[in-house]
Design a protein around this nucleic acid. Structure first.
Ligand SMILES: [Mn+2]
Ligand SMILES: [Mn+2]
Length: 530
DNA sequence: ACCGGTCACACACAG
DNA sequence: AACCATAGAG
DNA sequence: CTGTGTGTGACCCTCTATGGT
């Protein structure tokens, strides 16, 4: 990891960071291993006496090595809480010759005895005849990890899971010359946003409303953001503003939403305008939205809000035509089994098979059909070898960034036999991590059957719509897929129990299916026993 | 980004 | 003794 | 009746040693 980061980002490392690289490389092998062990554990403090790593030989020289290199530090004091983390109840009882009902009260007693943090530490060191240490420079390691992975979620465990084969990643071409952080300033901008996110999480967890307001004000003061991290800020704006809404801080929420260029900022703003009685502003914003919606979900929301607002402004009534979908009603008894399963069971006599697949099947077929395009080496798409999807998978320009690739693949798919091609793809890629394919659920048999029965034109239409907006259109598929034995003999069925209604994403797919002549229906369940 | 985000769904409430 | 949560491991 | 908001549960390597209650 260090070599990769140095190669890719060596020029924008600070002296402390290059210093870390040198110091680590100068360590003996055992000390290097120990350092990795320590930073992988909770800590921060460790009793040297309790470090058992048979593969490392003696611990003491390794610790000496780390201390000398400045990659570990000795404790100068220990809070009673930290002491409790390092010692079991039995050990504490012996150390302080006391007993107590539970660990908490034992520590309570100890805090009476120990007047200072050095006291607790000295007691422990005297008993252990060994040091208490913590790994140092962990913040530098975090930074290097960020540079390696391009995100803050992944870390050393991803190496292990990959080595073990628990997670296998498709060997896509990775261009380390393409940098997520071209300059130090980009990195710093990312870290600024990250710090703000952390602060937000803390405040939210503490329910600190005053702190949240202050954070919001601070966020709204810096309006100029590095474009490379703008969408990160937008996500944070939306989250904080949503919380401000709940706190009744409409104005502050509106300010943050106005800085965000990410759904649902405008939808929420329109709702807020309506709520505070600024109907003409709500109207204006809805008109803006409908002139150029950021996504279909936003457009749908606006179409609900705008007529309502206009009614309030100008009176009158506008009748909205309701969606009409193919539907039927089923009577079922109450049961522990999910309604979807019950309906599948009930319908199974009419079909070859009825599968409860929800979003999983169509997304999987999409993933299999466009695997090579998804994993194509588009600049910036892959920052590390452990990704299950390109970085821009859910961005608006995913398809635009791969236009030619996708077009030629679409042309291929319109001539290939899909009931051969899709199972072939399944076998080629089986087990490789891909966000579109849940291998646990999608069997080769299911892919084969689906591809044999669902007409090519239907699949192509569905895939085109997914490509149009991969973020939104990967959800909302009906619960059930009923397959017959002949091409074209199938139906998708959305099950609705009593009190459940179609969601916007579900309506959008159902409307699309209706337009395309794709067989789909809604099964309304009523309880037969009440 | 510190077990969170995403999805489907049940339920409550307002008009 | 039975049970549960957690950390650490590959 | 519709449109909303809110809260719940399931799902994301898996096994085991340890320690606490
Ligand atoms: Mn469902
Ligand atoms: Mn359903």
């Amino acid at each position: 990891m260090l070599d990769t980061v140095e190669g890719q980002y060596g020029d924008l490392l600070l002296p402390e960071e290059t210093g870390f690289l040198e110091a680590y490389r100068r360590l003996g092998f055992d000390a290097q291993c120990l350092y990795v062990r320590l930073i992988s554990r909770v800590g921060p403090w460790f009793r040297e006496l309790r470090l058992h790593y048979p593969e490392l030989g003696a611990i003491t020289p390794a610790v000496d090595d780390l201390l000398q290199a400045g990659l570990a530090e000795q404790a100068a004091g220990l809070s009673v809480e930290d002491l409790g983390g390092l010692c079991s109840v039995a050990e504490l009882s012996t150390l302080y010759a006391t007993r107590a009902a539970d660990k908490a009260s034992l520590l309570q007693q100890i805090s009476q005895v120990e007047s200072s943090e050095t006291g607790a530490l000295d007691t422990l060191i005297a008993a252990d005849c060994a040091r208490v240490i913590a790994p140092a420079k962990t913040d530098v390691v975090n930074l290097l990890q960020l540079l390696f992975f391009g995100n803050r979620r992944q870390g050393l465990t991803d190496f292990v899971l990959s080595d073990l084969g628990v997670a296998r990643y498709y060997p896509y071409a990775l261009d380390r010359g393409q940098r997520l952080f071209p300059r130090r300033e980009t990195l710093e901008a990312y870290l600024d946003c990250a710090a703000c996110e952390d602060q937000w999480h803390v405040l939210l967890e503490q329910g600190d409303e005053k702190g949240i307001r202050e954070l919001a004000v601070a966020m709204s003061c810096t309006a100029i953001r590095d474009p490379a991290v703008q969408h990160r800020w937008d996500r944070l704006y939306n989250r904080v503003a949503r919380q401000l809404e709940r706190m009744g801080e409409s104005q502050l929420a509106l300010t943050l939403y106005s800085l965000s260029q990410r759904h649902p900022a405008r939808e929420r703003s329109a709702r807020l305008f309506e709520k505070v009685g600024a109907h003409s502003q709500a109207e204006q914003l809805c008109e803006t939205i409908e002139a150029q919606p950021w996504c279909e979900d936003e457009r749908d929301a606006s179409r609900r809000i705008l007529p309502r607002v206009r009614r309030k402004l100008y009176g009158g009534s506008t009748s909205r035509r309701r969606d009409q979908f193919d539907q039927f009603v089923l009577s079922l008894p109450h049961s522990d089994v999910r309604v979807e399963r019950q309906v599948a069971q009930k319908l199974s006599g009419d079909w070859q098979q009825v599968r409860y697949v929800e979003n999983q099947l169509m997304t999987a077929l999409f993933g299999l059909a466009f695997w090579e395009q998804i994993f194509a080496p588009v600049p910036g798409a892959f920052n590390n070898p452990y990704q299950s999807v390109p970085a821009d998978m859910y961005e608006q320009d995913f398809a635009a960034n791969r236009r030619e690739l996708l077009d030629s693949r679409l042309a291929e798919l319109s001539t290939l036999s899909l009931d051969v091609e899709l199972p072939n793809r399944w076998r080629s890629y089986q087990g490789f991590q891909c966000r579109w394919v849940n291998w646990r659920v999608i069997s080769e048999e299911l892919v084969t059957n689906a591809a044999a029965v669902i007409p090519r034109e239907h699949l192509l239409a569905i895939w085109q719509r997914i490509l149009f907006d991969p973020r939104e259109n990967r959800r909302g598929f009906p619960d059930l897929l009923a397959l017959g034995s002949r091409p074209g003999d199938y139906q998708m069925i959305e099950v609705k129990g009593p009190g459940d209604t179609l969601q916007d994403s579900q309506k959008r797919w159902l409307r699309f299916f209706r337009e395309q002549g794709i067989p789909a229906a809604v099964a309304h369940v009523q309880w037969s026993d009440d």
